[in-house]
């Protein structure tokens, strides 16, 4: 397994540990922002605002994760991944999944 492939798997593994919280927040945003926008027929330009809202919640997840599991990074350090890289990967992955989910919801309901 190359270093890059290992690190991508490691980011996926780390994402699984924060996915319940990040997924919950995604669901709340979709319910509270996207769904009303679809009902009111103004879902066309809502995607950038949705993504910004989602990104704004990342520091909250980061803070809670640091408080709940302060020792969670050791394994990833041993795979040569810094905190910054881990979280950058997680935010990118979660942002992509969130946008995909939002697009799907809009395509189905709009």
């Amino acid at each position: 397994m190359t270093i890059l492939a290992t690190q991508l798997r490691a980011v996926g593994l780390f994402y699984r540990s924060v996915a319940p919280l990040m997924g919950g927040i995604s669901g709340l945003i979709l319910l509270a922002v996207l769904l009303p926008a679809i009902v009111e027929g103004r879902s066309g330009g809502v995607m950038p605002a949705l993504l910004l809202t989602k990104l704004a919640t990342a520091p909250v997840v980061w803070y809670l994760s640091e408080q709940w599991r302060p020792g969670q990074y050791w394994f990833y350090f041993n795979l040569h991944l810094s905190r910054r890289r881990l979280w950058a990967g997680v935010v990118a992955l979660d942002g992509g999944l969130f946008l995909g989910g939002a697009w799907l919801v809009r395509a189905v309901l709009a």
Binding site: M1, I3, T6, R9, A10, L13, F14, R16, S17, G71, Q72, W74, F75, F77, N78, L79, H80, S82
Partner: peptide, 28 residues
């Protein structure tokens, strides 16, 4: 720790994520 192949570290606390099997951890 950012240098591949240079060093690793066993902390006092558990090293492996709780969801990971030993075989998968070894592979990584």
């Amino acid at each position: 720790f950012r240098q591949p192949g240079l060093l690793n570290y066993l902390p006092q606390e558990p090293l492996l994520p709780p969801s990971l099997t030993l075989a998968r951890a070894a592979k990584l």
